[in-house]
């Protein structure tokens, strides 16, 4: 588990160095649609992509699209950080990118629909501000896909 009190001092100090101030005034949005009508997209910072895609560079603010028609079991990971467990993701893609779980939520009508395209960033080595351009681009693509809400997963 990641409770800072359970970690060695060097690990605790490193993770606390990642405390950043808010990116700016909080943007808050409400969406009156019930969850059962909402269109959902997944966005992860796990550095996922398919074999044919460009791998992520050491410090890389770009993103990779993951189509709903692609087989998520073919996703691989080129993440620069050596400091998180990969053995769980080796066993189950849904541990990091829970697309199958969301397809099940769609099948039982818990959610309204799933986006046509989902996205992966690689979250390491860069200050949040450097991602702004890519993040704006993805926000535009999600709007175009009429997405109501985004589910975010880190590693």
């Amino acid at each position: 588990m990641v409770r800072l009190t359970d970690l060695p001092e060097y690990e605790r100090d490193h993770l606390l160095e990642k405390n950043m101030p808010p990116l700016g005034p909080m943007t808050w949005s409400n969406n009156a649609k019930p969850l059962s009508a909402k269109r959902i997209a997944l966005v992860t910072t796990a550095g996922l992509h398919f074999r044919g895609d460009n791998a992520f560079d050491f410090a890389d603010p770009t993103f990779r699209p993951i189509s709903i028609d692609d087989d998520a079991n073919d996703l691989i990971m080129s993440h620069s950080s050596a400091n998180f467990d990969r053995s769980g993701f080796v066993e189950d893609v849904n541990l990091v990118f829970p697309i199958k779980r969301f397809q099940e939520l769609l099948a039982d009508k818990t959610i309204g629909s799933l986006a046509d395209v989902h996205y992966s960033f690689m979250g390491a080595g860069l200050m949040p501000k450097v991602y702004e351009k890519s993040a704006m681009q993805v926000a535009g693509l999600l709007k175009q896909d009429l997405v109501d809400a985004v589910f975010l997963t880190p590693v």
Binding site: M1, V2, R3, L4, L15, L16, K18, N19, M20, P21, P22, L23, M26, T27, W28, S29, N83, F84, D85, R86, G88, F89, E91, D92, N94, L95, V96, P98, R101, P128, L152, T153, P154, V155
Partner: peptide, 25 residues
């Protein structure tokens, strides 16, 4: 602590190891 600091609009803190955001494979 990172989420407390950056204040994303809606966030669920989970007590899982790094690399396992959904908890169990």
């Amino acid at each position: 602590e990172n989420a407390e600091s950056m204040q994303p609009p809606r966030s669920l803190w989970v007590p899982f190891p790094l690399g396992r955001p959904l908890g169990k494979p």
